[in-house]
């Protein structure tokens, strides 16, 4: 999704040109291609998950409880006899939704605050900088715990908490990018033609720093997934029996010591898969957007 948007901006020559560019980028760096493939798998699972899984993710079957992986149950069954494969696939929607909404929220709030901070400077910058510093004074996961505990134990609040702890990161990136451009030729041209400052900020600066922000969003997606899963692992936000990777690992943790490894392993692997995918995708996007920073 993020890749497609970045591409349309680069190559406004219609669908064919977009595809050609995507093919060129992927052939240039096979790792980005693999990451994009992994991303497609996640998108398919999140979109069609409930329709393609073999079992109902909530249906328990105590006769088939705690079975190791087999042909009938690829990832085995949990203590209530629920099919873990189905639960892992269906859970991708909730985990991805939490990450996407929190990243969108922090982009809207933190990104705009950062641009305003770099563009206006002065008091705006000082106030926003002070807010960022205060957030950074906390260990971030601990702050997220405190926020969810205070606002109430719901999925929405997990989204909000994850957005808040990422706020300083977005402010920093957007601020430095906007500060470079505050007196660029095209900004002065926009000002001369009579655009208001906020209009310049949103219609001239924002589109220009979008590619950098896209990279940032992809990299923080992975962190957002880890953070949300960590919160639900300790019992915040998502309630059982809802399938969610963090809570499934928590459910399986009691059975690790007695050797039923599959209950915790597969949701944990799914988490790793998603986080790894977004980290690789972010690195790949950075190569496309900013060739100088290639590693």
């Amino acid at each position: 999704m993020t890749l497609a948007t970045a591409d349309t901006q680069k190559a406004p020559g219609g669908l064919a040109a977009t595809l050609a560019h995507a093919r060129y980028v992927i052939s240039d760096n096979p790792v980005t291609g693999i990451a994009f493939g992994m991303f497609l798998v996640l998108v398919v699972c999140a979109t069609f998950g409930p329709f393609i899984v073999p079992y109902d993710p909530l249906a328990s079957d105590t006769a088939a409880a705690l079975q190791p992986p087999s042909a009938a149950h690829w990832f085995g069954t949990d203590n209530l006899g629920r099919d873990i494969f189905s639960r892992v696939v269906v859970a991708s929607r909730l985990d991805m939704a939490i990450a996407i909404f929190s990243v969108a929220l922090v982009f809207a709030v933190g990104g705009v605050a950062g641009i305003a901070s770099g563009f206006f400077g002065g008091w705006t910058d000082r106030i926003i900088g002070r807010i960022s510093d205060t957030i950074m004074a906390f260990p971030l996961f601990v702050l997220a715990m405190g926020i969810v505990a205070a606002l109430g134990n719901t999925v929405t609040n997990i989204v909000i908490a994850t957005a808040i702890i990422n706020f300083p990161l977005y402010v920093r990136v957007a601020k430095s990018e906007a500060a470079i451009r505050r007196n660029a030729g095209y900004v002065q041209a926009a000002r001369l033609t009579g655009n208001s400052e906020w209009r310049i900020l949103l219609t001239t600066i924002l589109p220009n720093i979008m590619p950098i922000m896209m990279v940032q969003m992809s990299l923080t997606m992975g962190y957002a997934i880890l953070n949300a899963a960590g919160l639900s692992f300790i019992g915040l936000g998502v309630r059982p029996p809802t399938p969610e990777w963090g809570i499934m690992v928590a459910e399986g943790s009691a059975y690790i010591v007695s050797g039923e490894w599959w209950i915790a392993l597969f949701p944990g692997l799914a988490l790793m898969f998603a986080v790894f995918c977004f980290n690789l995708l972010g690195d790949g996007l950075r190569d496309i957007v900013d060739p100088q920073r290639r590693t």
């Binding site: 992975g222 880890l226 899963a229 960590g230 692992f233 963090g246 690992v249 928590a250 399986g252 943790s253 690790i256 010591v257 007695s258 050797g259 490894w261 915790a264 392993l265 944990g268 988490l271 790793m272 986080v275 790894f276 980290n279 690789l280």
Partner: peptide
């Protein structure tokens, strides 16, 4: 690269499985 993608609670559980349940090197 792999290290930053690992959920820490998951690594912990894997190590418990390997060192406590399988190998018996670590205590409960």
């Amino acid at each position: 690269t792999a290290g930053v993608s690992l959920p820490v609670f998951f690594t912990g559980l894997l190590l418990v499985y390997v060192f406590y349940f399988k190998l018996g090197w670590a205590p409960a």
